[in-house]
Simulated scan of single mutants.
Amino acid sequence: MKSDQLDPAFARMAGALYLTIALCGGFSIGYVPMQIVVSGDAAASASNLLGHAGLFKLGVLADSAVILCEIAITVILYQLFRRESPTIAMMSVIARSGMIFVMGINLMLWVMPYGLLTLPSDFSLAERQNLAQLFFDAHGLGIYAWQIFFGAHLLALGAMVLRSRAVPQILGWGLFVGAFGYLVQAFYELTFSSNTTLGYAIIGLLVIVTISEISFGLWLLIFAPRRASQTTTFKHA
């Protein structure tokens, strides 16, 4: 059954969670690793980690916040769009739950280097640095692993948005088409591929999905509640 109105309270919560995830995730996944991890140089990565311990811990807190927000938004999005298709809604829940599980494992991979470099150990310094770099590299690949689940979730979410009369169709298409950016990038990186043309295509799709996700979050936060309020007013009139 298609609907032309979303629950305003759930819409606000989903929008706020979307933007929180975007901010915290951009910091913990985008900014922090760039300041710490040096590809192929275990000693430099270890030095950066110990020299930016405060930044590293903030990144861990931000990652933890993302995981908690993901749990909440998974349930809320299901409540918002389950009327469009219960089957697709459940698929979106399962896919995003799988992503959350992988993100939890990935967080453990991220914190292991700090323990290796700061806690007493029988390993030599060089061995600890090399192990720390191995965990950093595994964490980087882990991001692409959870992107598979997230891409599947966005396909389902985009399909539900397209079935709904409550959300602008352009947002649904942006989520649905952009989902292939996450999926293709995940398979591209996890298979250690190298193709310049495909790389440009991935960037284009990721730009589309990033704009669509932020726009979707803002729409849920600002316009969906207002639209519901206007609809209620018209019905009473």
Rank of each mutant, 00 (worst) to 15 (best):
V111L: 06
S47G: 10
S121K: 11
T20D: 14
G115P: 00
L19N: 03
L117Q: 02
V102Q: 15
D122Q: 06
G15W: 04
S85K: 02
A14F: 08
H52D: 06
M34S: 13
L125T: 10
F81A: 06
G54R: 08
A22G: 14
P8H: 11
L134Q: 07
C69H: 02
G40N: 01
G51Y: 13
H52R: 09
D63K: 03
L61R: 07
M34C: 13
L19V: 05
G51I: 12
E84H: 09
G54Q: 08
S85D: 06
Y31W: 13
R82V: 06
R82N: 15
L116M: 02
Q129T: 04
E70G: 08
V32I: 14
I67W: 02
L117G: 02
M13T: 11
A62E: 01
P86Y: 07
G115Q: 01
G98Y: 02
L49P: 06
Y31P: 07
Y31M: 09
P120T: 01
E127H: 15
R12S: 05
Y114M: 03
G104T: 15
R82G: 08
Q35W: 14
S3W: 03
Q5I: 13
V111H: 02
V75D: 03
M108S: 15
V102I: 13
L61I: 08
S28V: 09
S97W: 10
G30Y: 09
V66Q: 00
R96K: 10
F10P: 10
G51Q: 13
A42I: 04
G15A: 03
L19M: 08
L125C: 07
A22S: 13
P33V: 08
A95F: 00
Y78F: 09
V32Y: 07
I21R: 06
V37E: 03
G59D: 01
F10L: 09
V37H: 05
H52S: 10
G40L: 01
F27A: 10
